[in-house]
Nucleic acid binder design. Structure first.
Lengths: 157, 157
DNA sequence: TTCTACATTGAGAATGATTCTAAACCAATA
DNA sequence: TATTGGTTTAGAATCATTCTCAATGTAGAA
């Protein structure tokens, strides 16, 4: 892994995502559905559900099936290119997804919405937590890593 | 409410929950299914799913239907007698429930398990977080209250 | 570039979790 | 004890996700 291609600067609204390069780096095939799905996920801050992503990419390629959305999202998550956000609230709430790699906290609301915590508050909270506490918790649970999530208190509706 | 039947001592593993009194206090009807479900939920630390609870209470009253489990759990959550825990991991993970009122953190793992954080770590982490940060986040989200949840990092499997 | 092997896709069926429906039932109150 | 309205039940309905497998497309070899 001695590539020298991390020289391009960020340019667009958010960041630049060269899907092709990123997929190559991860050793996963570059297909049209994957590019469309990944770019759609990168270019939104709304933490869409699989269904919502399907609506978006169908505008660009009517043939993409919902199963492909699910397959691709699982692939992205497995390769660390996206996160699945725990679903909340009543009923059959759909999972939501996020490709934003910058460290930030999610506020998971009971109505299903997920919003990003403002950067300053996100940082304040994260910095306040002793690193070793999270580590000890992970050890207690027998897992590699844990992260914080902020969820609405279930009492309130 | 001047009954004199709260004299029987705690006998079971954990705490005593006088379902009848608690339901009365909340102004909700005391029915056999509700008592069984609530007591089953109180007497375990395993954060069972609706399905798991159904298995448990069916041993005591074979007629209880799964729909009643769901109805009752929703009722308990609405009255603050139980919490619904966000579901994780792949696929159709079932929600888990907890009637433990003592303040404690949940560790939500990718395989669907939910375990309680040890009291000391739970306290360390909670105490470390500035109260006003959580408040500001709640305000930002437009909700009454937020709480922390610790989830396994999705990258690890 | 063309060919080939094999991963990926798409449509729909299958599964799992939760909610809905309507009729039978029962707890609280008078 | 009778009444009334909330509760329960069984099963159907709904929603989210996964599975199946034939058709397709990609990456690498020739």
């Amino acid at each position: 892994m001695v590539s020298v291609d991390h020289l391009h600067h960020d340019d667009c609204t958010h960041e630049h995502h060269d899907a092709k390069a990123i997929f190559a780096e991860q050793g996963i095939r570059c297909t049209k559905p994957r590019v469309l799905i990944y770019e759609a996920l990168c270019s939104t801050k709304s933490h869409p559900t699989a269904e919502e992503l399907h609506q978006i990419v169908k505008d660009q390629d009517a043939g993409i099936s919902l199963a492909t959305i699910y397959n691709t999202l699982e692939l992205l998550v497995d390769h660390g290119l996206a996160r699945r956000i725990a679903n909340r609230g009543q009923g059959s709430g759909a999972s939501r997804y996020d490709a934003d790699q910058a460290p930030h906290l999610h506020l998971v609301l009971n109505d299903g919405r997920v919003i990003d915590a403002p950067t300053n508050l996100s940082k304040k909270l994260t910095d306040a937590i002793p690193h070793e506490v999270l580590q000890q918790l992970a050890q207690h649970a027998g897992v590699d890593a844990l992260k914080i999530e902020i969820v609405e208190d279930t009492a309130a509706v």
